[in-house]
C-alpha cells in the first residue's frame, strides 16, 4: 500500500458511529524501517492526534480501522516523508520522496519512490528537519 493512498482516509473505531478523523500523514521509524504512528485530524482547525500503529487493525480499503483511541502521551515530531528532500551520506542531493510503499499488515516499509528512482528501505540512515539521509549506492 502507498502512503498517498492512506492519506485522507477516515479513521474509524468499532464502538463509535462516525470516523474520529482523517489521516494526515504516517510517521516512520527510520532505524527500524517501519511505520510507527498514524497522525490524524478531526477537522480543519482541530488539533492533530497521534495513534500508534499497534492500535490500528487494518489499513483500507476505504478506511483505517483502529481498536483504541489515541492515548495521551508524547508524540514523535511531525516529519512527513512525502516531499522530503533526500541527501546521500556523501552529501549529494538525490531529489525528493514522491511516494512510499509499505506492508499494511506489519507496517514494514517496502520501497521509497523518489524523483531519482527507487530506493530500498535498507539504505535509510536518518530522517531530520533538513533531509532524509540515505546510504550512497
Amino acid at each position: 500500500m502507498l502512503f498517498s493512498e492512506v492519506r485522507g482516509l477516515p479513521v474509524v473505531l468499532p464502538g463509535r458511529g462516525g470516523p474520529i478523523g482523517r489521516v494526515t500523514s504516517l510517521t516512520v521509524d527510520v532505524a527500524a524501517a517501519r511505520v510507527s504512528h498514524v497522525r490524524l485530524r478531526a477537522g480543519r482547525f482541530r488539533r492533530e492526534r497521534v495513534l500508534p500503529r499497534d492500535a490500528v487493525d487494518t489499513f483500507g480499503p476505504g478506511a483505517v480501522r483502529a481498536h483504541s483511541p489515541a492515548p495521551p502521551g508524547q508524540a514523535p515530531p511531525r516529519r512527513d516523508l512525502l516531499g522530503h528532500r533526500i541527501l546521500t551520506d556523501t552529501g549529494n542531493e538525490q531529489g525528493t520522496v514522491l511516494d512510499v510503499a509499505f506492508d499494511p499488515a506489519t507496517g514494514r516499509l517496502l520501497a521509497l519512490f523518489t524523483s531519482h528512482g527507487e530506493v530500498p528501505p535498507t539504505r535509510l540512515l536518518g530522517l531530520g528537519d533538513h533531509a532524509l539521509v540515505v546510504r550512497a549506492a
Binding site: L87, G126, G128, D129, H130, V133
Partner: peptide
C-alpha cells in the same frame, strides 16, 4: 552550504 548530521538535521 548546510552542515547536516547523518540523522538528517541541519
Amino acid at each position: 552550504r548546510p552542515v547536516v548530521t547523518l540523522g538528517g538535521d541541519a
